[in-house]
Computed example of a mutant assay.
Amino acid sequence: MIKVGIVGGAGYTGGELIRLLLNHPNASIHFVHSTSNAGHPLHKVHADLLGETDLLFSAELSNEIDLLFLCMGHGDAAEFLQANKIAASIKIIDLSQDFRLNESPVLNGRTFVYGLPELNREAIIHAQNIANPGCFATAIQLGLLPLAKAGVLTDIYTTGITGSTGAGQGLSSTSHFSWRANNIEAYKTLSHQHVKEITQSLNQLQVGDALSASGEGNGLHFVPWRGDFTRGIYISSIVEIGLPFDEVKHLYQSFYAHAAFTIVSDKMINLKQVVNTNKCLIHLEKQGNKLVVHSAIDNLLKGASGQAVQNMNLLFGLNEKAGLKLKASYF
């Protein structure tokens, strides 16, 4: 059994991770760290865990573990590793954005591999530390990686809508039910923090001219939206491509032929197919030279905690799907 510790277990991603690990055949949770909830049962925060576990939140850390998950806010993970001595033998999977970019600092001798299995599977298997990808970044990249490998990406125009859990558990003016219900809004237009992360990965595969993360010249132009639902991300990316549609479909089918969770669908996809799963579904449409790539994921699973468990499975030589054979709640 993999001995696991979790830091930041009171938020949405922490709660989702706890739920997955409690039912994982090869993992056991040794502590869930939260200074503000120390001594209280997990179900005080995550009410659905009543009757599932007797674990209490802990204010103490332990080095008697094999793997540490960091489910902390952006910037907090780097500060945590600077302030706390974590044994070098302990593997780390960080769910913040602190170590996703190549220019991210190396802390306490630790370097991080970008944890998108469809891109870096072999590097993940041999890694010690993983930077788990962002939710929007995961959905957009999985829709575009085959085109990057073919070297045909230039300008990319992307829109995507996300549920309220993507904003985290802390209340804000746009996460109250009275604001969110029956409402949508664009935000961070052309300036979302995941753009650099996405273009970094696309440039890892792209043959020829590099894509820009600044929005100038060829690159990703992304408009995210807040939706009036709780979980899930739906992306539509438009690119100009001269290849015949059958050749484009072959690119995608070949690229994802051995992917554990990414599936190319011949039919239009929808959110209900992926919510409560670790899947990414992709559907392609083409009119003239314009290709539209639709991709959908659950932001808390394939976009966060599910992908973190997928990375754990790869790190420890387990079946990649262990603990992740989840079915969508379709109705």
Results as ranks from 00 to 15, higher is better:
A167N: 08
Y157H: 15
V152K: 09
L147T: 10
K149R: 09
T154Q: 13
S173G: 14
D155G: 04
L171I: 15
G160A: 13
G151D: 01
K149Q: 10
G163D: 15
S175Y: 06
S175K: 14
A167V: 04
G170M: 13
A148D: 06
G151T: 02
I161S: 00
L145N: 02
T158A: 11
A167P: 08
A150Q: 04
G143A: 10
V152F: 10
L144Q: 05
G151V: 07
T154P: 01
P146A: 10
T174I: 08
Y157S: 03
G151R: 01
S175P: 06
D155R: 02
L147P: 03
P146R: 03
L171M: 12
Q169G: 10
Y157M: 05
G170C: 11
G163M: 05
S172A: 14
G160V: 01
L171T: 15
K149G: 10
L144F: 05
I161R: 03
L153P: 06
A150S: 07
Q169I: 15
G151W: 00
G166W: 00
T159I: 11
S164F: 07
G143S: 11
L171K: 12
T159F: 09
S175V: 07
G151P: 04
G163V: 07
I161L: 11
V152P: 03
L144R: 03
G163Y: 08
G168I: 14
S172C: 10
T154K: 14
A167I: 12
Q169D: 06
T174E: 10
L147M: 04
S164T: 15
I156L: 10
L147N: 02
A167W: 01
L171D: 15
T174V: 09
A150G: 00
K149F: 00
G168P: 07
T165V: 12
T174C: 03
T162N: 05
L144W: 05
Q169P: 04
L144A: 01
I156E: 03
S173D: 11
G166N: 15
I156V: 11
G170H: 14
T174G: 06
G163C: 13
G166H: 07
G160T: 11
G151N: 01
G160R: 10
L145E: 03
G160Q: 07
D155T: 08
P146Y: 03
T154W: 02
G170P: 13
T158F: 04
T165F: 10
V152R: 04
